[in-house]
Design a protein around this nucleic acid. Structure first.
Lengths: 226, 226
DNA sequence: CTTTGTGAAGCGATTCACAGCA
DNA sequence: TGCTGTGAATCGCTTCACAAAG
C-alpha cells in the first residue's frame, strides 16, 4: 500500500468519525471523497487496499469503514508517547492531553533544564533528559516526539533509539540520521513556509509574464505577437 | 519542477546555510546529499531544475547555491504572516518571533476571545477575529496560519481568503475548501501519529508472520513448511 | 580523473473506464 | 439502474548511467 494512501486513510477516518457522530450511517465514495478533498477514484482505490467493505449500488457503511481503517492503522491498541523538549511547542503538545484522535497517551516528558524537572505539564511530571532510556523502557514508549532546539535533536534521537523507540516525530529543523528499523516523520515549519513562499513567487512571476509577455498583448493591449 | 523537489530545496538551503556559518565554501553533491538525507542523483536533479551552478570535477560553491535557492524560493522578499487562534499552539508560533529561517515576520495575531484582545504575545498585540479582513489588508499579510479549534477553521479560512490571503498553513484537523487560486499546506499531528501507528502495526504483523509463518519454522524451530 | 548535468529507463502512484454485483 | 472494485493506461517522480566539462 502506498505511503500516501496511509496518510489519506487517516483523513478518511476523521471525516467518517465526524459523520458517525452526526448520525450518518452510510456514505458513497463520491460523498466521502468530496468531504476528504480527493477524487472518488482515488478514494475507492485507497479503500480497496484494505479490503472490499462496500456494497455495489449503495455505498459504504460508516461504522464498518471506521473499524476497518482503525484496525489497519493500528489504532486498536494504545501507543505511549514521550515528548522531549518542554519549551513553547513541548508545552503545547503536552497540553493536548492525549493526542488528537485519542489512542496516543502522552506518558513521559523530558527536558535538560533542571528547573523544569518535577513540575507537571498537562498532568505529567517532567523528567530530566538523562533518564530517557530508563523511563522510556519502563513506560513502554513507542513514539518519541522531538521538540528540542536543533543542536540537541540528533543526540535526543540517538537516546530514544537506544531506549527502543522505533517511531519518531521530529519538530526540530534537523535531518536526523537513524538506523533502518526506525521510522521518522518530520514536521518542519520553515520548510512549509518556504514552500508557500515559492508559490507566492511563482504566482508573481506568472502574473508578470502574462501581463507583459505570454498573452501576446502589451501592457496597453497592443498586439505584440499576433 | 516537482513539488517534492521544492520541499527538498528548502532542506538543502538549511544545510548549506549551516555549512556557510561553519566556514565551508565548497561542497560536492555527494557531501550535500548525505547531510540532507537524500541520494546524490536526486540532489543533482533537484539542483538542475534551478540551473547549472556547479563546477564539474569540483562541486558547488556554497554561497552561490544559497543565493540561487533563496531566489527560487522567493526568500528575497519578506512574507508577512498572520496567526489566527492564540491557544497553546498559537502562543508557540507567535513566540518563535519571526519564523525559523527568517523572512517570515509575524505581523498580526487574531482570536475570538475578548480577554486576549490587546494583550501582546511575542511582541505583537492580539486583534479580534472580526478585524481579520481590515488588518490583513492593511499589513499586507501574504501567509495566514490557522491554529484554531477545528469548528472555527473553515470560517477563519474563508475570512483570510476574502482578505486576499492566498497562502494558508493549516494546523486544524479539518479539510479546508478553498478556491483554486489559494495554496493550502496542512500540518496534521493526528495524521502523523496515525502514520507512525500504522508502521508499528505493520512491524508487529511482520514479526508475527516471520516467527510463526513465513520462514517455515514454528516458534520452537520445528519445520512446518519445509 | 573527478564530479556535474541530463536523457532515458524504471518504478510507483494516480486516473480511467468498465466489468461485476446488489 | 447505480455504485463499487479493479485491471489497464497514464502520469510524474526517482534512479541510472554516461557524456560533457574542468
Amino acid at each position: 500500500m502506498p505511503e500516501a494512501a496511509v496518510a489519506r486513510l487517516a483523513v478518511y477516518l476523521r471525516v467518517l468519525s465526524g459523520m458517525a457522530e452526526s448520525g450518518v450511517t452510510a456514505v458513497s465514495s463520491e460523498e466521502l471523497s468530496q468531504a476528504a478533498g480527493v477524487n472518488a477514484a482515488k478514494l475507492r482505490k485507497d479503500l480497496s487496499y484494505i479490503g472490499s467493505y462496500g456494497t455495489r449500488g449503495v455505498g459504504y457503511d460508516v461504522e464498518v469503514l471506521v473499524s476497518h481503517i482503525e484496525r489497519i492503522l493500528g489504532l486498536t491498541r494504545n501507543h505511549s508517547v514521550a515528548v522531549v523538549g518542554i519549551g513553547n511547542l513541548g508545552h503545547a503538545l503536552a497540553n493536548y492531553g492525549g493526542f488528537p484522535g485519542r489512542g496516543f497517551p502522552v506518558t513521559a516528558l523530558f527536558d535538560v533544564d533542571a528547573d523544569l524537572v518535577g513540575i507537571p505539564v498537562g498532568g505529567i511530571p517532567v523528567n530530566h533528559i538523562d533518564e530517557i532510556t530508563a523511563v522510556c523502557l519502563e513506560r513502554e514508549v513507542s513514539i518519541g516526539v522531538i521538540a528540542t532546539p536543533p543542536p540537541a535533536a540528533q543526540s535526543v534521537c540517538d537516546r530514544l533509539v537506544s531506549a527502543g523507540v522505533q517511531c519518531i516525530l521530529n519538530f526540530a529543523p534537523v535531518v536526523l540520521q537513524v538506523p533502518d528499523n526506525v521510522e521518522v516523520r518530520k514536521v518542519d515549519l520553515a520548510v512549509e513556509m518556504q514552500i508557500l513562499s515559492f508559490h507566492v513567487a511563482r504566482r508573481a512571476d506568472e502574473a508578470a509574464s502574462v501581463s507583459v509577455g505570454n498573452n501576446g498583448l502589451g501592457v496597453d493591449g497592443m498586439v505584440i505577437r499576433p
